[in-house]
Design a protein around this nucleic acid. Structure first.
Lengths: 229, 229
DNA sequence: ATCTGTTTGTCATTAGTACGACATTTTCTT
DNA sequence: AAGAAAATGTCGTACTAATGACAAACAGAT
């Protein structure tokens, strides 16, 4: 789409572009590809973190759970995205839980293999740092949202981001296809399912969006942007 | 102190340890040291980010401001800490605002010099990535706190972290000396000044802490830890 | 020592959201 | 096709924490 945000491009820069043929082949030998059905865990919290993943196809969500069982979604992973990359930096355990939201095709590299590979391709180092730096920026924005914005603004901001990440512009409207459950939006925006519902309903009444169980249409992104501040 | 958290050590690992003499000297030539009075800005949001800093002495806070003027403190910087390191990763502008809280001694390296220096000392690359990775972990924890914890738990968690970072154990108690204004704690824990006050007062009534304008004493860290969950 | 601005302490009021409850609709399973 | 399970829509109630207002304590400057 024409107006994908700059951030989108940063997010989706190919970690491996610019590698020569022989390295690509070497890369191929150290990765394993796997078809994973819907709603299958990839890894759990406290698992030793010894792989880094690339999502080829499908959707994955990364979550954390509070001591009393509430779920918070840290990130939605789309095709082309890397996840679990903290394993490269730290030897410790995973702090999040990764689960497919659709049938997915996932590519894995063991931490050690990847480290060796980086050693031989130092240009990856900067890219990886940039990737992590980019994640950090997103986290900062998230924190800022939680601190400065109310539930309404958080949900609206989320919709805008979603539209920029995975929307398809058709005429004046932006379509987002495999739409999320209200509970998922709630877990992403730190409010309750019911609050999400009432906000979405209000936005629909006001003609800013339209939605049903499987798609979302942003009808007036400009106005949304104004209210998200 | 005996029980400084593991995270503390990660945070304070010396970016430059292990460098040989000639590199240390080279490093010395590209850094500038500066004595900065209390309450002096180091950089502003939107400034071009072209330096990385090390705090030798004093205290610095990094903040962000909401459109309507509310302040959020992103981090407190203590002697030995690096800050502004995102400039290495990204060419863009600063998103935060750095200001001294006390008279401080600050060491600066220009982004370009630092990049050159890294080029010649690739081991720094991994360290830098780890530093950023560590920051990221902290941010994740912050997000989790905002989502899962209420104001009470957030303030208590903050006190515990503060104690671990800069407390001095004396007998059974932990002393924290240049204590923060309630407004600062509020900006760090995402609640109002008045809420912080009432929480601290309650904790004092319950005999878990003691405090006045310039010092804080943690009297029962265990109990605090239990309530922070 | 006094004046001035800052920080703290305390209160009453209000706003924003969570939560529980339940009906309705949709989707999945067999 | 029918029954079960999941997701949505809509209430009312309850509670947490923000806000505004003000007095008291303190700190810095002259």
């Amino acid at each position: 789409m024409a107006d994908k945000s700059k951030l989108w491009y940063l997010e989706n820069f190919n970690l491996f572009e610019g590698l020569d043929q022989s390295n690509m082949e070497r890369l191929n030998t150290i990765t394993t590809m796997q078809d994973v059905p819907k709603s299958q865990p990839i890894y759990f919290a406290q698992d030793p973190s010894n792989s880094i993943f690339f999502l080829k196809k499908g959707r994955v969500k990364l979550t954390r759970t509070s001591p009393d069982g509430k779920e918070m979604i840290i990130a939605l992973i789309n095709p082309g995205d890397v996840f679990g990359e903290m394993s490269i930096v730290e030897d410790s355990q995973r702090t999040d839980y990764a689960i497919t939201m659709d049938e997915s095709l996932i590519c894995a590299i063991s931490k050690n293999d990847f480290r060796d590979f980086i050693e031989k391709n130092p240009s990856l180092n900067l890219k990886l740092t940039k990737l992590i730096g980019f994640r950090m920026r997103k986290y900062t924005e998230r924190i800022e949202g939680l601190v400065f914005k109310d539930a309404y603004q958080r949900v609206v901001s989320f919709l805008i981001n979603l539209a920029e990440d995975q929307g398809k512009r058709i005429g004046d409207e932006i379509f987002i296809k495999p739409f999320l459950k209200h509970q998922d939006i709630a877990s992403l925006t730190a409010c309750s399912r019911q609050t999400v519902n009432s906000i979405l309903t209000k936005l629909r009444e006001d003609g800013l969006i339209d939605f049903d169980r499987r798609k979302l249409i942003i009808k007036d992104k400009n106005s949304l942007q104004k209210m998200a501040l």
